[in-house]
């Protein structure tokens, strides 16, 4: 089903137009990298605070609240450029295991953030200024850090074709 969708997109005029434009790919990829680095960097600063490894003079609620709009701006821009990159070359990304693994890690990272927000974060008033937050918060920070690092690693590795040759995904 997803494969049919990718094949359908591949034949669309707008997809072909981006694919065949001189600078489309370079511009999209550059903006994608700039915004994902901004997003990952600010997420990292928040995760370091949750773990108790960095920015410990700033209350957790301030880091969370004040950086959130910037994180969402960067995430929105990198999501738009990311979708357009796939939209322009769906059959390039379809067989890539690194690409699909990246999508799974992103979903898990989002889930980790949601669970943290609706459970542990509810009691932030009690540990807002603690330089070392409670274990559940530290765990969420560490899991977020590892997952987003994984997203960056897999995103960069998507450019490589090491295992496409034996990956049995039909194309």
């Amino acid at each position: 089903m997803i494969r049919d969708l990718f094949l359908w997109i591949d034949a669309l005029e707008s997809s072909i137009a981006i694919r065949e434009s001189d600078y489309g790919y370079a511009i999209l990829l550059t903006v994608h990298v700039l915004t994902i680095v901004m997003f990952a960097g600010l997420i990292l600063m928040m995760d370091l605070r949750l773990i108790g490894w960095g920015n410990v003079k700033t209350p957790v609620s301030q880091i969370q609240g004040r950086l959130f709009p910037w994180q969402m701006f960067a995430m929105g821009a990198s999501a738009i450029t990311g979708v357009l990159l796939v939209y322009a070359q769906p059959l390039r990304y379809w067989p890539k295991i690194f690409f699909w693994a990246k999508m799974v890690l992103m979903a898990l990272a989002g889930l980790n953030a949601l669970v943290f927000h609706f459970t542990t974060y509810k009691s932030v008033d009690k540990w807002d200024t603690a330089s070392v937050p409670p274990p559940a918060a530290r765990r969420a920070g560490l899991v977020g850090l590892v997952l987003w690092a994984g997203v960056l690693i897999l995103g960069r590795l998507t450019a490589y074709n090491w295992i496409d040759t034996w990956w049995p995904w039909p194309i």
């Binding site: 990298v33 680095v37 901004m38 990952a40 960097g41 600010l42 997420i43 990292l44 600063m45 690092a149 960056l152 690693i153 995103g155 960069r156």
Partner: peptide, 10 residues
């Protein structure tokens, strides 16, 4: 890329 994210965040 990972180091860039650390640097950019800080």
């Amino acid at each position: 890329l990972l180091a860039l994210a650390v640097f950019a965040g800080a």
